[in-house]
Design a protein around this nucleic acid. Structure first.
Lengths: 248, 248
DNA sequence: GCCGGGCCTTGACCTAAATCAATCAGGGGC
DNA sequence: GCCCCTGATTGATTTAGGTCAAGGCCCGGC
């Protein structure tokens, strides 16, 4: 594979074997080598905190494997998840040195980090990198707005169905297509984390999961393994436009 | 004023007298003239729709004056506002030709539009424009995440207090600083629009506004004019960190 | 002045989800 | 095997906010 094929941010990352979205260093071995110089890996265990809101954060990173969450907490302890980072997702904001959210590993996690200052320099010098980052940020903004509809207007049942649909759709590595179109995956979140994602309590999450199981919309093996026998039927329950609304 | 001073996206826009954030064409009269060529203005009246979700949208724009909203609607009519555009805010997504949200004027509105294709070309050619756009998008993403906390975890009273604080803080043109630090402004939203912003019903909004009035946190003159005698006291009610949490 | 139509307010009642409180299940350590 | 411990479930009860319904206010047209 030549360096022409190397596109951090969406393809293989230099000499490392994993796919992750980082910055495209397309067709420029100088840029690539600069990226290689400022790149390093960090691993975290389940439950470990990557950064606390308010802490200094002198890197940006993309998720290589595992899952991380962004959460906000109010003084009295109410928590709201505001971001769910799956492999290839990007975290950190060029131009900001203080983390605005708690970043936590909800599974074992490997991140590919770039020291912030040189990364910012790279952006300034490399137009298509800024463009790629813009594109990713716009995608995140769309996801956030979808999420706002969920939080503001959906019922508990719709919220759960939506979350299951999102997870089933989004991370191909979690997804196993079984016989006759059924989907199966391991939930990467505890009931409490699901509740924080959905703006519910963990009890409500648990009850609605049980209800969906009772109604045959999902099957559960243990607490984490979910089987969706009919994905379209589940999608019906999300309250979203049936046409999947592709936007370009 | 020379063209060096002209910075669309955050300063005066070419020959037009209003400040609005468009794209920075700093120090490059060629870029500036290109922008001038693809720029045009559109006016809308209260309640008029700029674009419907799903419609073709072949421009991006920044708000010159007035206020617009982005909303999502479910088939059964439940609505959630997902964006509030005040003067200088940007709308439209390079790389997407179909609108993802309804864009509606909630006051009389003037927008400075740029035809999409040439605008995209401009971005590709002008690094600092892409960077400026990235910065703005990241700000919007932060605002969206703040909003998610509000939708998911705040009480009706906290939601109302937060919205009033946001409006009071955000648009200087609405804000009149009266004697002894009181703030006064006209609400740019109906009770129903506030409800759509906050994930509440209009009745709950009305009741909570009355409650805040009863408690002396706000005064109302007519239905729209709000006076906040003690902004800090109102901020206490938002449930947000008291320290205003500045991040950069 | 009178009427009509948007908005907004207020009241009475209802319900979805929160809260409080037991259990329960499964996996790891010993 | 047995004990813990953490996470999940389930039940009983409460409550914030939604729903339904009845006016009220204000402005603009005639």
């Amino acid at each position: 594979m030549s360096h022409h094929d190397i596109e951090l941010l969406s393809h293989d990352c230099g000499d490392c074997p994993i796919r992750h979205r980082a910055v495209c260093a397309r067709c420029d071995s100088d840029e690539l080598s600069r990226l290689e110089q400022i790149k390093y890996y960090r691993s975290f265990q389940v439950g470990q905190t990557v950064v606390w809101s308010g802490d200094r954060m002198d890197f940006v990173a993309s998720v290589v494997s595992g899952i991380a969450t962004l959460t906000q907490t109010m003084e009295d302890g109410r928590r709201q998840m505001v971001g769910l980072l799956l492999p290839s997702d990007f975290v950190g904001r060029p131009g900001r040195s203080i983390a605005a959210y708690d970043v936590t590993a909800t599974t074992d996690l490997v991140m590919c980090c770039f020291r912030k200052k040189p990364f910012e320099d790279l952006i300034a010098r490399t137009p298509h990198v800024a463009q790629r980052l813009l594109e990713m940020t716009l995608d995140e903004l769309d996801a956030a707005r979808e999420w706002m509809l969920l939080l503001g207007r959906k019922t508990a049942r719709e919220k759960i169905a939506s979350l299951l649909a999102i997870i089933a759709r989004r991370d191909a590595s979690l997804k196993l297509r079984t016989a006759k179109g059924a989907l199966a995956f391991d939930l990467p979140l505890t009931r409490e984390e699901m509740a924080d994602y959905l703006g519910l309590t963990l009890e409500t999450v648990s009850r609605q999961m049980s209800a969906l199981k009772r109604d045959g919309m999902i099957q559960l093996e243990g607490k984490r393994h979910v089987i969706i026998p009919d994905f379209d039927a589940l999608t019906e329950l999300t309250g979203d436009d049936s046409d999947g609304g592709f936007l370009v």
